[in-house]
Design a protein around this nucleic acid. Structure first.
Lengths: 393, 393
DNA sequence: GGTATTTTAGATACAAGCTAAATATATTGC
DNA sequence: GCAATATATTTAGCTTGTATCTAAAATACC
């Protein structure tokens, strides 16, 4: 039986506290009167909610303001509430094949610690891999001047399909074994709740939060370095599909003028090598192609042109089926990809009736950790009234 | 300022009434004790909610049961509540280029009246078109033995992109003019609220409700007759994209082995004609191809084989990017399309790593009206506590 | 056929949360 | 110092819940 929890009067407090907390989180400081206007509650309720939130540790009451403060200068001074951004922290992990990066952020999402650890080899046992990840977390926390007990949630990105419940597709043998191990290990070691997600999906969260797609509800983010992967947001929600494989781009094998899901860096390297490499005989590499093109080298320019058309076709296929407002090219190549934007944008209408705005990410290779932090914060914010904050040490 | 409505005690009643109503709607009759178990509320609250719902007209209390009734035979007889399925009606419209079909359904979704009207010509003025649509509605209501005042909402499907707010893409000149006219005309004439949607999206709602995709949350429905169009549901929600163009299949022009967004019927006709038509010299047509293939005609079988591979590629491209659990082939050709399923299913793994289940719709060309009814009912159910029911005539 | 058992109904007491209105307090400006 | 102003606090009352107790209406048993 779907025993839908009955709505008791306590639900009202939960809802209103969420609303008040959301507003306080968004502002530097907030007064009762402001909160009344923003939430529609009466003063009595606002104050009661604030007292409640103070008791739970989410907000703090500030000292009476100095005379230099802004706002209405007349009348009795208002009580001032502020979000307690250091009531806890979240961890954002980018778990790659070779390296894991951990970022520690406070509850406003400001990154206050960061650490990267590399794996000894690609095929180390899961247990050792988890150890390395744990070390990255500890070092990042140390750098932030805090400790594991202050962590409220952990967002983690991996390069595999993850369904909406955070489970890895069972067919993905390697990751699915690893997945369970990681979650239970971090739960046991520190009591952390780990939220697993696909890395491209986290990139989408990151771009929408602090990147190029700020505030865009229908957004596609392409992780475009070695292998293309898409994080798709529709109406502000991440798309997962049945097994978390939404945004996979295997179909590109069938698309004319594309033919594979190779990313921008991979293509630049391949095509440069196929053409004999740079004119001075140096090794073919993606950065080199972009450099040469910037210097006016015709071979390099031709390669970028081919890449642009290819990307235009990729983006057009997504634009047709998903109809996003904007597509962000993200990942390690994002900086260089800016060069391609004018050509891609110009080509798009040839391939789709609904061309999106195309931009390059400003977040570089930090997108995934930024998105992982956002993912963890989303969880914390959604469950604020259910979580108990750690006592300040 | 986002003046988020404060949560007042009345919200609780709204929430609980919704829950109770949902359960009563799902059951033939419900007793207080059942509702207590299903909602988690106490008897006092359940009874209060039921009295409330009776007052608003959504449910009725039945007479004490005869001795032949099922359930516990001992103890004081329970008060019995039932959903008032005739408290109002909804209209589901399928507005095509040549014809409009209107279906009237009661609040349980049982179709109780139906009527089709054809347009005099394809290029008649909007005003006349609206008149024909209105006539279809009136006749369907008459057939149902009810009248316009009993209509709580109207779902309407058209073959153009419609965004989540029910607005037609401004670039779609014809439909966008028509859109505004239709809504305001039906509002003025009868006071109806018209919910416009893309026809493939409504097909998806229809299939998930009463068709082949019952209960599937990640579902794609292909309207596959003349021109391919997809209705995409992810996590139980319809995808629209920025301008409502999600599910458009223009990208198929670029897909190898596909090359256009022609539907099954169009292809069967074209390819049959290109091969000289049926062996007895008859006219090339889709039904004929399926007939001949059933009779063992090699040319017809070859055509169906080509169509199967093509559909497999189409479905694979969707499967890759969206990862649905199931894809339903729907529309007028759905009956015949059943033949193609084994071959499509067998081919799918060649084109995608995440092949969905593929089925044919049992709803025939009624899918869109069924989906339109569901769309209207969704609106009515979501707004039950805000709507006032018409007084019974 | 009366009595116990069972199941549901209805009534009473009370708690949580919100609104509304009256009263109190702290600050500025004259 | 006093009026004006903005905010804080208190008090009473409403809505909606829960919890608990008693009453009613049916069956089952002896």
């Amino acid at each position: 039986m779907p025993h839908a929890a009955a709505a008791t009067p306590q639900l009202l407090r939960r809802v209103n506290a969420q609303a008040v907390l959301r507003h306080i989180r968004g502002a530097e400081v907030a007064t009762g009167t402001e909160l009344m206007a923003l939430t529609g509650l009466t003063r009595a309720s606002v104050i009661a909610v604030c007292e409640d939130l103070i008791g739970r540790g989410w907000i703090v009451e500030l000292e009476p303001p100095g005379t230099n403060s802004e706002g209405p200068r007349k009348g009795r001074p208002a009580r001032r509430f502020a979000f307690n951004r250091e009531a806890g922290f979240v961890l954002g992990l980018d778990i790659g094949a070779a390296t894991t990066t951990a970022a520690v952020a406070d509850l406003r999402g400001t990154v206050v610690g960061r650490s990267s650890e590399s794996f000894r080899a690609a095929d180390i046992p899961a247990q050792e891999r988890i150890g390395v990840i744990d070390r990255a977390c500890r070092r990042a926390l140390e750098a932030a001047g805090t400790d594991p007990s202050m962590v409220l949630a952990v967002g983690a990105g991996i390069a595999a399909p993850v369904d909406r419940d955070g489970n890895v597709l069972v067919t993905q043998r390697f990751w699915s074994l690893f997945d369970v191990g990681l979650r239970s290990a971090l739960k046991e070691l520190h009591g952390w709740t780990v939220l697993l997600e696909n890395d491209a999906n986290l990139a989408a969260l990151g771009e929408r939060w602090r990147g190029s797609g700020a505030g865009v509800d229908d957004l596609v983010v392409l992780l475009a370095g070695e292998r293309l992967g898409a994080g798709v947001m529709e109406s502000g929600r991440l798309l997962h599909g049945r097994g978390g494989a939404a945004g996979e781009m295997g179909y590109l094998d069938m698309v004319e003028g594309v033919g594979s899901s190779d990313g921008i860096a991979a293509l630049a390297r391949q095509w440069s090598a196929a053409g004999g490499g740079p004119s001075d005989g140096g090794a073919a590499s993606a950065p080199r192609v972009f450099e040469d093109a910037a210097a006016g080298d015709p071979a390099a320019l031709a390669i970028l042109s081919r890449i642009s058309e290819r990307m235009a076709r990729v983006i057009a296929s997504i634009a047709s089926l998903i109809n996003p407002e904007q597509v962000v090219i993200s990942g390690a190549v994002a900086d260089s990809a800016g060069t391609l934007l004018p050509e891609i944008t110009a080509l798009l209408p040839r391939f789709t009736a609904t061309p999106p705005r195309v931009t390059a990410s400003p977040l570089g290779d930090a997108v995934v950790t930024v998105g992982a932090v956002r993912h963890a914060l989303d969880y914390v914010e959604a469950n604020a009234m259910e979580l108990t904050l750690p006592a300040r040490g």
